[in-house]
Structures are given as C-alpha cells and as structure tokens.
Design a protein around this nucleic acid. Structure first.
Lengths: 132, 132
DNA sequence: CTACGAGTTCAAGTCGACTTTAAGTCAAAG
DNA sequence: CTTTGACTTAAAGTCGACTTGAACTCGTAG
C-alpha cells in the first residue's frame, strides 16, 4: 500500500488543491501528519479519512458537522450511532429544502403563464395570489 | 394611496432593515428616490417594485438575476418574455438540485444501516459502494 | 553555483446579501 | 439650547469553504 504521500499526491487523489488539505488540518478535521524536512508526509489512513469527509460533504454536511462526527462524541461511540444522530437532523433539513424547491417550481410555472404588461404589476399579481 | 414614505416605512412594510433598501439602491435594483432634507422619500411604485424583488428572491433568483429581469432586456420587452427566459434556466437548476437532494437522502439512509466499527472503514464502505 | 519545482507559513482575498459601525446632519420636543 | 430619534455616508465586518499572494526553505538537476 502507498505510504509517505506528499500533500500533492493526496490532493491529486481527491481532486482538490493542496490548500484545501492544509485547511482541513487547520480546522482540525485532518490530524497533523508527520514531517520530512518540514514537509507533510501522509500514510494511507488519511485517504480513508478524506473519503469520509468528501462523502459527508456531498451528502450535505458542513465541515463543522463533520468535525462533530469525528470528535463530537465520547470516545468509543460506534460510527453508526454517530452517523445516526447527525443524519436525523440532516434528513429533516433536506425535507424542508425539498418543500421549498417544489414551491419555487410552482411559482415559476405560474409566472410563466403571466400576461401582464408592466413588471411591477406582474409582481403585484403574483404576490396577491401567492399560496400563503 | 400612501406617498412620501420614509425609508423606515418601506422597510417595515417588507419586513427588512433600512440598510437592505439602501443596498438595493446601491446595486441598482431600486432607483434613487427623491429627497427631502437629504432623506429618501418614496412613492408607492417602490412597493410594487419591492414586491417583485422579494417574490423573485423567494423563488430562488439572485439579486444579479433580478437586475437582469428589470434591466437586462431591450426596452419594451414584455414581462412574460423576461420571466420566461430566466425561469427556463432556473427550473433546470432546480431539477438538478432536487436530484442531488434525493441522492443525499438515499446516502444518509444507507449510512444509517451501516454497522462498522471504525469511522474510516465506514466511510470507505460507503465510498466503495457509492451509486456512481 | 544556480535555477527549478515543490513545499512551507501567515495574512488577506473571494462570493452573495446584507449588517454593523463610526461620524455626521436635521427637525421637532422639552 | 440641548437632547432625542431618524436619517445620511463610506467603510468594514459577517458566514463558509476555501484560494491566493508574498516571502521563505528544501533537495535535486544541470
């Protein structure tokens, strides 16, 4: 297995800039790695860690929440429990956002059928007949 | 009808701070109103304009796009045509975001059933069995 | 020896939509 | 006359996730 990765190697694997890796270290999401001549050298454990980080990001977690995932629980708390707690919150958030997106879509469709002459009048009508 | 509104009146009607009104003027979304003793005085046309702005915002347009809506078309372009052009883009964006949200939800649910011991291993599994 | 590329640090910049702050003006009330 | 409250301006601050820039150090190639 690959050991002794330079920061640029790690960055390349995940398609991010080296500055992002340093940033993650700075905010405490990646542990400070060992150094060779002052330069960071990573072993492949960082790859797994970054995989979790990236997937969690795609899944909609902020970096703050991701830190919580790693360090916000008493040591020994099993991962499923950790994920579970954060997921609950997140899923609720997602549902909320979905609802708002759907509302937007309806509004946009309604506005597409609008036939008024003045923009301001137009907005007034939409506003007047809004769904709440 | 109400004329000669102070900035605080306008702000109160729309539930925003006066600073927001000045900001809209600054970025060219509201026209500079007349002044009385150096202070802004609005007539009610600003109310219609702001109604459009607010509704457009709720609907997911950025202020930049809203300016485009007002000023980005040859004079005389009817409102429906204006809305139509922007809506097309926006609806596409919305669909894209919806898809991503749904993906997130599936991922979260999958991770809830995860039973691994180490967070890193856990992420690895999710990553390895990701849907793309 | 010198240049090169890749690494380092710390501070500052970016984006969007505002807000906050500091310092000043004005009219009405006490 | 002084205070109060609402207004004015320009500039700086906020949030999140980074990026960019300046100035510096390394080991290696020519």
């Amino acid at each position: 297995m690959a050991e002794d990765l330079a920061i640029s190697d790690v960055a390349r694997v995940f398609g991010v800039r080296t500055s992002a890796i340093r940033y993650y270290e700075q905010i405490g999401i990646l542990p400070p790695p060992m150094r060779k001549n002052g330069q960071r050298r990573y072993d492949n454990s960082v790859l797994f860690r970054l995989a979790v980080v990236q997937r969690a990001q795609e899944t909609g977690f902020t970096l703050e929440e991701i830190r919580e995932l790693f360090f916000g629980f008493p040591p020994g708390t099993p991962p499923p429990k950790r994920w579970h707690k954060l997921s609950q919150r997140k899923i609720a958030e997602l549902r909320e956002r979905m609802k708002r997106l759907k509302l937007m879509e309806t509004l946009l469709k309604r506005v597409e059928n609008c036939r008024c002459d003045a923009l301001d009048e137009c907005g007034d009508k939409i506003l007047g007949h809004g769904s709440r």
